[in-house]
């Protein structure tokens, strides 16, 4: 999974920091998202998906690897 953020969209709601604290943080001065890990380990994938889903500004983009099933 690759994570990208569109910083200009961020409204500082903080959902991502709560959902996936290993992957996202916030700048102290304006609350804007900081991407800590653009390639999170597998055990963080579920949290990261939750963060993207909760983001009110759709500022988190996930590129999931196609899995062959």
């Amino acid at each position: 999974m690759k994570v990208e953020i569109e910083e200009f969209k961020c409204v500082g709601a903080g959902h991502c920091v709560v959902a996936a604290p290993e992957v996202f943080d916030q700048r102290d001065d304006d609350g804007v998202v900081i991407l800590l890990d653009a390639d999170p380990p597998e055990h963080e994938h579920e949290n990261t998906r939750e963060a993207a889903q909760l983001c009110p500004a759709a500022a988190i983009l996930l590129l999931e690897k196609a899995t062959s099933t």
Binding site: F8, G12, G14, V17, Q26, R27, D28, D30, G31, V32
Partner: peptide
């Protein structure tokens, strides 16, 4: 956005 970002720092999780 400009105005909101003046205030969001007060409401970070931290």
């Amino acid at each position: 956005s400009r105005l909101r970002r003046m205030l969001t720092g007060f409401f970070t999780i931290k």
